[in-house]
Design a protein around this nucleic acid. Sequence first.
DNA 1: ATCTAATCGAGACGGTACGTCGCGTCTTGTT
DNA 2: AACAAGACGCGACGTACCGTCTCGATTAGAT
Lengths: 195, 195, 195, 195
Amino acid sequence: MNGGRPRDETIDQELQTAALILFAEGGLAAVNFDQVAKRAGASRAALYRRWATREALVTSALQGYRAKAESGFEDWTSRPLGEILDIFVDQTVAAFSDPFARNLLRQLFALSDQEAEIKHLYWSTIVEPRRKAFSLIIRQAQERREIGPDLDPELMQDLLGGALSYRLLAYPGDEHVLDARSYIRAVLHAAGFPI
Amino acid sequence: MNGGRPRDETIDQELQTAALILFAEGGLAAVNFDQVAKRAGASRAALYRRWATREALVTSALQGYRAKAESGFEDWTSRPLGEILDIFVDQTVAAFSDPFARNLLRQLFALSDQEAEIKHLYWSTIVEPRRKAFSLIIRQAQERREIGPDLDPELMQDLLGGALSYRLLAYPGDEHVLDARSYIRAVLHAAGFPI
Amino acid sequence: MNGGRPRDETIDQELQTAALILFAEGGLAAVNFDQVAKRAGASRAALYRRWATREALVTSALQGYRAKAESGFEDWTSRPLGEILDIFVDQTVAAFSDPFARNLLRQLFALSDQEAEIKHLYWSTIVEPRRKAFSLIIRQAQERREIGPDLDPELMQDLLGGALSYRLLAYPGDEHVLDARSYIRAVLHAAGFPI
Amino acid sequence: MNGGRPRDETIDQELQTAALILFAEGGLAAVNFDQVAKRAGASRAALYRRWATREALVTSALQGYRAKAESGFEDWTSRPLGEILDIFVDQTVAAFSDPFARNLLRQLFALSDQEAEIKHLYWSTIVEPRRKAFSLIIRQAQERREIGPDLDPELMQDLLGGALSYRLLAYPGDEHVLDARSYIRAVLHAAGFPI
DNA sequence: ATCTAATCGAGACGGTACGTCGCGTCTTGTT
DNA sequence: AACAAGACGCGACGTACCGTCTCGATTAGAT
């Protein structure tokens, strides 16, 4: 009772790729089902069979994308805080130098509440785990007395992540000369770090 | 020979209001010409006669909105920095408590590069003047030796504005308990301000 | 109580001319008020002030046109019938050789019942007077015993006018080699005229 | 690879029927795509998918209409000419008594050169075959010496068809007392037929 | 080797928004 | 009061995308 032709899994990937490209280029509104199917060389039926809505399609595409390129802080915990922060900021800036990733993140950041499902996915699966790992690093540094105990790690990330996203994503235009490490120095100074 | 029936300016306003509501609710994609005209009780022809594109419509609506509710820092320059910052943050948080303004700013912040015209308008007419006024205040405080001379006012705003927008706009959901003044304390500490 | 600027009567004529040209080119549907006013170098207001509907405009234009070019049979009554008929048919064919008149008459013939007002005008002011004059000629020829008394003049005109309009107007295309005088011979034969 | 959901042929018919009704009522200009789709209970997309232009739609509708109601002269050839003509005229008059057919033919006859495609279709598929069959009948009667050999069958039809269409279609109003058979007598007399 | 059932591409279905154009009415300032 | 200019609401135009559906053809596993 479970016969039938199995799904062609290569089609899944091609559809997701096409959807992600369109999303990065023009946001959710640009994810046109006809276009996605056409670019992937598949039919609209095959697309709708997999995902009922634009959101579900982009959500799935994002998860697939995230699964490929993921870097954590797990193995950094033994390093000194200053070094970790430098690497983190450099990684962030480097990631935003890739136009595709840059646009993709901009679109993700730009998601309105009306696009709740995918927005929630982005935060819960991408942002929050990163923030938790980061908080752990900060607390360990506080335990090692590298920085003062007063500064809330969450607040510290709000300042650092906020400044970076503000400059790199929210600002119009593609090119901003950015001395990103000065954010670190300022935040560390706020945290009582003896520069 | 420059006669003709003059445009009904009440229609301008009603169209702009309707457009702004739709924009705040769902972003540029939700600014539907049929809907705008219908809500304003006008005809699509009257709408197209004024603005050829969605962007031009929303741009104009934003300028009209901004013209009404504008608050500057001009008369604050004599106050102590801590007081000014408190007022600034309180105003920002209060502004974001109004659901309409909150959504409106979220949409503005969320504008992608594809919506370049309106994004540029938002930054050049709303954000940048505010940042310049803010920078002046900081520099005056530095001249009065209230805070140290090392922290770049631009960087300070990136941290403060970034953290606020990050928390208040980018985060999903509408409700965030936010001790906004702690951002100020952190930033002032970073600036060598004796708390 | 009858002050005010008098109407510019040259505008009347230019509007009528423009309307008639458009009518001959494409029928009633092509008589576009914007176009008429533009071609006449006048404003739509001046046009609507004179005629409320398309039909009234074309009706008026036709009356003006007819007033200029009108030829009757009044002075023919003394000639022999054969000669009169030849002249009549030659005139008709010649009139249809002018492309403008040809198209104009075709459009008039093509008027549907929905365009009743102008259709009625055409028949009552152009066709019927001509038919009555023609009937008088036939009856005088019958009294002179040139042709037999049996053939109804109305029927004779139905045959002759019908055949001519059928060939010259209803047929598609612009060019028909037409031996129009053979219609006369046939009709006269039917009327007992000794060819 | 020539799949796809087949077109619903009932929709074709309903669209054609709706188009033909509108055409008979008000000519080509009255064939409104919105109206046609609405009356047929279909969508405009389904309509445009089938016919790109008004002309193509009406052309197709006419062919469908003609396919249903077609009567030829094929089996009449053995009868005497007078009888055939009586039947022909009676059929024509009877056909024009149906208001729908009457209006339809009036619109067809009234087609201007600007509506060339459909006008040509009407003449080539409806009028010309009928004229050719009619000519054959006349020639056979001439061979049987029922009427004289001099009268051109084409000319005979111009007289007969012209008179009928002139009276029944071109005249304004719907009601004309018409002794159609008198046309036959006149034409036969012209053809040397001994009444 | 056949049967079976879910897949595939293709494309039609009713909707709805787009941006344009013509309609007939109206409201200005100017002559 | 006429004039030109042009705005007003209305509604049709032809196109494109939406999400659903209905086809014939494919394709593997279960019989």
